[in-house]
Every structure is written in structure tokens, then in C-alpha cells.
Design a protein around this nucleic acid. Structure first.
Length: 256
DNA sequence: ATGGTTGGAACCCAA
């Protein structure tokens, strides 16, 4: 079972890329972030032809998440239960016995801003909810655009991306660690320990060509899935296509 | 280097 995560930065613009990538990578489940479209405009019929059904929670202009799957998705949850949030950043569903939580984590703008405070509050609510979900669903995957680079290997310049910088600040990394401490594992790191493998590159300053990126798109697997996780990686190729998303798809393979 | 680029809106915001 191949499970992937991709921040498409507008599904309107990126639908051809998504279709091309689905046809070649053939994932069983995909969590999308930043679809940036209202539910009535979600291109679900265009994806049926490729063998995918969709569940989604969108809004105009900003945010928006979806789960595509070859098998039906059940027990769909939109938003964090008990956490009042106008922004559509969370959708969860069960596919093939695996609970999949798809997150578009708040960016946070800059350390110390209101948006940063919202990010930390939001991550706190996610923590409590994931703790709950783990009780109900031992076979759990938490994936998405985390907008947090786990450690120095995951940034091109650790001197810039330090404990005071957005996406790498101490409080953000502590929030990620608290999630992992619930009994989750960064699937990529189960299979690779090298530095310089990234999932996001800024559009500016030819960052992709120079590999000035960050690894902020993560897939966390529960203890029960850790032994089933036979591989993980990041598909850089779609980032090289014409008019790309600034993120590349990240994937994990679960055996059995 | 307070720059630079992209997407979607409306002549700026978020990333």
C-alpha cells in the first residue's frame, strides 16, 4: 500500500501535474494540501477516470485538503474535533484498514507573530486529537505539509534555518517531537539518514536548481505500521515540470 | 540582501 502526500499549491493549476503523477506513481492513497478551491469546484470526476475517489474539505483562495484513494474512504473527519477553526486544514479517513490523517499545518509566517501563536495552538490541538485517534486506530498515518523541518539534515543551511527561524524554531520542533512521542515515527528517517533530501523549494532565486530546500512534508507512522513500512521517499520529478508546485510528493510504502 | 516568485484574489495577501 503506497501512501503519499503532496502540497499542490492550487489544484486548479496543478490538476494536469496531479493526473500525470498519479498515472506514473500509482499511489493507493494521496493526501493533498493547498487545493485552494471550494468543494463544488473540486475536480473529483476528472480523477475517477484514473481510478481515484476523493473526499475533500476546501475553501476559496487559501488552504483546502483532500484524500484521494483507490479503495473507498470511510469515517471521514473534517477539522480537529473540538477545535474551532475556519481554515480548512485537516481531513482524516480510513482506507484499507489504515487511518490517514492529512494535515496542512499552519505556516506561521514569522516567529513571534499572531500566526505563529496560532500555529503552536493549532499543533497543540492536533497533538491531543492524534493521541485520541491512536487509541481508536493503532494503524495510523499522520501525513501532510507540516511546515516544520525536523532537524539540521532537513534544511540546506542550518545556520539560517536555526532555532529562531520559522519552520525550524525550537517551539515548532518541540511540537513535532511531542507528536512523535505519542508513538509515531518519521517514515522517511526509517529508511534514510542522509542530509539534503528536500520536499519544498522556494520559487525564488532558482532554489530548486540549487537544491536550496527543506524537508517539511512528512509521513508519520504508528508503532504498529513501523514494521510494515518497507520504503519511503520524495519524488523530485514533478518539481522540475513546467509551472510546478513548490512542493514535491512524499510517499511511503506499507507491506501487506 | 527586508530582496525574490507564485497563486488567487482584487489592485494586496499568503506562502
Amino acid at each position: 500500500m503506497k501512501i503519499a502526500s503532496w502540497n499542490v499549491n492550487s489544484l486548479n493549476v496543478r490538476l494536469p501535474h496531479l493526473q500525470q503523477w498519479l498515472a506514473s506513481a500509482v499511489p493507493d492513497v494521496v493526501g493533498l494540501q493547498e487545493t485552494k478551491l471550494d468543494d463544488p469546484r473540486f475536480p473529483d470526476t476528472e480523477l475517477v477516470g484514473l481510478g481515484y475517489r476523493s473526499v475533500f474539505a476546501g475553501q476559496k483562495t487559501y488552504n483546502g485538503v483532500a484524500i484521494l484513494s483507490r479503495e473507498p474512504a470511510t469515517d471521514v473527519q473534517i477539522g480537529i474535533p473540538g477545535f474551532d477553526d475556519e481554515q480548512k486544514r485537516v481531513i482524516a479517513a480510513t482506507v484499507g484498514g489504515v487511518r490517514v490523517i492529512n494535515l496542512y499545518v499552519v505556516n506561521g509566517q514569522d516567529v513571534g507573530t499572531d500566526k505563529y501563536a496560532y500555529k503552536l495552538r493549532w499543533l497543540d490541538a492536533v497533538h491531543d486529537w492524534v493521541a485520541d485517534e491512536l487509541q481508536r486506530h493503532p494503524q495510523l498515518v499522520v501525513l501532510g505539509d507540516f511546515n516544520i523541518a525536523p532537524d539540521a539534515r532537513d534544511v540546506h543551511d542550518p545556520e539560517v534555518w536555526n532555532e529562531y527561524h520559522i519552520l525550524t524554531s525550537a517551539a515548532e520542533r518541540t511540537a513535532l517531537q511531542r507528536l512523535l512521542d505519542l508513538g509515531l515515527h518519521d517514515a522517511f528517517r526509517l529508511h534514510h539518514d542522509d542530509a539534503g533530501v528536500f520536499s519544498w523549494w522556494d520559487y525564488r532565486q532558482a532554489a530548486f536548481r540549487r537544491n536550496l530546500g527543506l524537508r517539511i512534508d512528512l509521513t508519520l507512522v504508528s508503532e504498529a505500521l513501523r514494521t510494515r513500512c518497507s520504503g519511503a521517499g520524495i519524488d523530485r520529478e514533478p518539481r522540475s515540470w513546467e509551472r510546478p508546485s513548490d512542493h514535491a510528493p512524499a510517499w511511503v510504502e506499507l507491506a501487506g
